[in-house]
Each structure stands twice: as C-alpha cells, then as structure tokens.
C-alpha cells in the first residue's frame, strides 16, 4: 500500500462539513472520494475514522441522514447539512484560519 497522508487531527469534521456544503447530500464513500480528489490524493479518509465521525456528527445534530438510491442503483445513506452544521462549519473555518495564520507567521522566514 502506498503512503498517504492522514487527515490532520481535528480537521475531519470541517472537511466533511465543507464537502457536504459543496456537493449537497452525499453518501460516505462519496465524501471520502471527494476529499481525496480535491486534495489531489494528499488526504485520505480512512473508513475507520469516517463512519464513526459521521455517527458522531449525527448525534451532535450537524447532519441528518436519509436512505436514497445511489449511482450504482443501491440503497445508500445520504448525509445532509443542517443549519447547525452550517454554523459549525463557519465556526470551524474561522478557527482554522486563525490557527493557520498564526502558524504561518511563526514559520515564515524573518
């Protein structure tokens, strides 16, 4: 198996939220695939962390799930953003930019 970069800790929720914002309702595989493609194969989402994360987000009320027909004509669980999820995304992105900016300032050559 080739080397892949794991998702940085703490950012998985944000990536999932953003993906759903972009694509609209989507199933788990689609979310993982999207993150991988957009990141040009730098980021890989392991199933072992994706599905538990989705469950956790359902519990927190950021997502809702419904069963729909998928592209291969099978039943799949589609996840959709809730207003709470949108709010969470905004908050997480703001926080992320704040931290990234700070890190950038630290590592910038003087």
């Amino acid at each position: 198996m080739e080397e892949r970069t794991e998702i940085p800790p703490g950012t998985l929720y944000m990536l999932i939220l953003k993906t759903l914002m972009r694509l609209g309702p989507m199933h788990g595989y689609g979310i993982a695939r999207h993150i991988q493609q957009i990141s040009e194969d730098v980021l890989t989402v392991e199933e072992g962390s994706l599905y538990p994360a989705l469950q956790r987000m359902l519990i927190k009320g950021w997502l809702v799930a419904e069963w729909k027909q998928s592209e291969n004509n099978r039943r799949a669980r589609f996840y959709r953003l809730t207003p709470a999820g949108r709010k969470q995304l905004t908050a997480e992105m703001a926080e992320f930019e704040r931290v990234m900016g700070a890190i950038a300032r630290v590592i910038q050559p003087a």
């Binding site: 199933h27 788990g28 595989y29 695939r33 890989t44 199933e47 291969n72 099978r74 799949a76 669980r77």
Partner: peptide
C-alpha cells in the same frame, strides 16, 4: 448496508484503476 455499499463503490473504482484500491 452502508459498509457494503461503500465497498462496492470502492471495488468499482478500483476496477477502473482509480481510488484507494
């Protein structure tokens, strides 16, 4: 069911030489 679905899509993409294998 969700897992099976995920796996089937993954297999399909792998057959086309794409995705994570």
């Amino acid at each position: 069911e969700e897992m099976r679905h995920h796996l089937s899509l993954k297999e399909r993409d792998a057959d086309f030489g794409e995705g994570a294998g």
